[in-house]
Amino acid sequence: MPSNILVVEDSRTTRKFLTVVLKGDGYHVITAENGIEALERLSSINVDAIVTDLNMPQMDGLEFIRAIRENDDYSRIPILLLTTEGEERGRKQGLEAGATAYMAKPIEPEVFLGAVKKLITVIGQ
């Protein structure tokens, strides 16, 4: 069974880019445009890892991560936070909020896939 990855990203370009990269490596991908949509997706499907952007309208990455960590059903799901370079403050806040790891854009596909694999095989166990 392929692992389910939830990609939460408001930019349709990056959402599509990440989806193509993940699908190319055999993952099943579920997408959402913001934290609220992502929580809706989580209520109907089990996911093995979450990849989320930091800056999003409606519910941003930090609020979303906090909501995940406060929910007993989802709190153990590993989360990779994506930030734009130069957002050191956001990264720190993300880790404090409960992100498992972070990665700065631009995203190098091989490095990204390595990070997702690590989330699932090492941290997600």
Partner: peptide, 23 residues
């Protein structure tokens, strides 16, 4: 629209990468 969105996202990332070096 997809090309437009991608150009915006590329600009965002170029700015981010440059801001890290400027810092």
């Amino acid at each position: 629209d997809e090309v437009r969105d991608a150009v915006g996202e590329i600009t965002n990332m170029v700015s981010g990468d440059a801001r890290r070096s400027l810092a």
